[in-house]
């Protein structure tokens, strides 16, 4: 049984967990190679007005005849009438989405899953550590922090990408910095124009002086990256209860019924995707899981 004392609180309830609602694509913004952000709005005004999500949750996006895909929301949770999803074109459904245009309609059900425990972290320093498209589920955290800046202490964003061209949301960094978020960027492979850090994102911890008693780490990205982030966080005496991880598994139903995303005793779609590391430590990194 998962230790719920160290897991973020239950998901936001919604009326019909398996109900799909039509939503129209309002805008498509290319972010990087094969990655774009889709701004969508529910067709039904009633759904649009009542829909709410928390940072870290995801929707199931549906294309009739092709399938569904779980995608985290990447937009401001305080402005949930228009919802952003940052999508990497990597499989059948997402490639089909890449062929859609502004004005097209897709099916959406959600929100699903646990979320980053922003209320519990009030008063803390936040160290957001992410790589690649893993920044997408953490961007709502950044928006939340910017709206409630006085509630949090020092906020760091440590972000790594394969190359400078693969970085997401680069046009927003300056505004984030101006509002007190310290951003450290790194790439695995630099081009001649790159003047920033080169190396993997966990190495950026070496540039920080963190107070382990009041710092929480929020991390999302490739699982192998998360391993190293946890290693560096623990090496800095940040407790397992203060490290939060967003896990990725093969989510199908989104409501913990089908079992595709089982991760030890948990279903990632229901008890996750956001877990306190203390809750998943026994099976995190275990090959069979």
């Amino acid at each position: 049984m998962l230790n719920t004392m160290t897991t973020p609180t239950a998901p936001v309830p919604h009326p019909g967990p398996m109900l799909t609602f039509p939503a129209r694509i309002l805008e498509i913004k290319e972010e990087a190679y094969a990655i774009a952000t889709y701004q969508i709005a529910f067709e039904s005004e009633a759904v649009r007005k009542t829909y709410r999500f928390r940072p870290g949750q995801f929707n199931m996006l549906y294309l009739p005849g092709i399938g569904e895909v779980p995608i985290s929301m990447s937009s401001d949770p305080a402005e949930s009438e228009v919802i952003g999803h940052t999508i990497r074109y990597a499989g059948n459904v997402t490639r089909a989405i890449s062929r859609l245009q502004t004005g097209d309609v897709i099916g959406v059900r959600g929100p699903y899953g646990s979320y980053w425990p922003m209320e519990r972290l009030i008063g803390d320093d936040l160290c957001i550590v992410t790589g690649g498209i893993g920044l997408a589920p953490l961007r709502p955290v950044i928006y939340h922090v910017l709206r409630h800046r006085e509630q949090y202490g020092r906020v760091y964003l440590l972000y790594g990408a394969r190359t400078p061209k693969d970085m997401l949301y680069t046009d927003e960094y300056e505004a984030w910095k101006q509002q007190g978020i310290q951003i450290l960027l790194t790439v695995d492979r630099a081009d001649p124009s790159w003047r920033g850090n080169v190396g993997v994102v966990p190495m950026l911890f070496y540039q920080l002086r963190l107070d382990p008693k009041k710092t929480a780490v929020l991390t999302c990205g490739p699982e192998i990256m998360i391993h190293f982030v946890i290693y560096e966080a623990l090496a800095r005496r940040i407790s397992k209860e203060r490290i939060y991880v967003s896990m990725e598994r093969n989510m199908k139903c989104g409501v913990g019924l089908c079992g595709h995303c089982q991760f030890g005793p948990a279903f990632v779609c229901k008890e996750g995707p956001v877990f306190a590391y203390a809750a998943i430590e026994p099976f995190f990194g275990v090959e069979e899981f």
Binding site: T94, G221, P222
Partner: peptide, 17 residues
């Protein structure tokens, strides 16, 4: 450890949904 991670090319696109 960091070099291993860099060699793994962890952000390379993979076949998913």
């Amino acid at each position: 450890k960091a070099t291993r991670l860099q060699l793994l090319d962890i952000y390379a696109p993979s076949q998913e949904h």
